[in-house]
Amino acid sequence: MTSTVSMTVNGKQVSAECEGRTLLVQYLREKLALTGTHVGCDTSQCGACVVHVDGISVKSCTMLAHQAEGCDVVTIEGLADGDTLHPMQEAFRENHALQCGFCTPGMVMSAIDMVNRHDTLDEKTVRHQLEGNLCRCTGYHNIVKAILAAHPVMKGTA
């Protein structure tokens, strides 16, 4: 049985027919062709599928599209302003915080939520807050550096 699910994605109002079981990540990738959000493990562990729903980071492989009805969703495609990268994307670029890049969309989305929730950040906190995101290139060192570099930029204290 299908029914229409509507939400705002990256500022645009969208609608699509979904089954009850349609996951938010399937809605984004298959209905809207927004393939920047990745499916890594499909078991809620790797965090490659992290997006923001009403400003909060969630694993879109573990949320039904129906649960996001009427919500404001932001994906990795919604961050940059034209050719100007979001400060977190820029920090990842500056700090070489990726190798293969598969985990990067989820890392960036988690990192932005982390900065939003913390007035101050230190390395230990960043590592604890990154527990929901796996990087199999073992590139955590530069990811942590990038997040610590982006924090003051996003907070306007750089």
Binding site: S44, G47, V50, I56, S57, V58, K59, T62, M63, S110, D113, M114, Q129, E131, G132, N133
Partner: peptide, 9 residues
């Protein structure tokens, strides 16, 4: 519990 995204839901 879990990780930040699990705690958010």
């Amino acid at each position: 519990i879990g990780d930040p995204q699990v705690r958010n839901r």
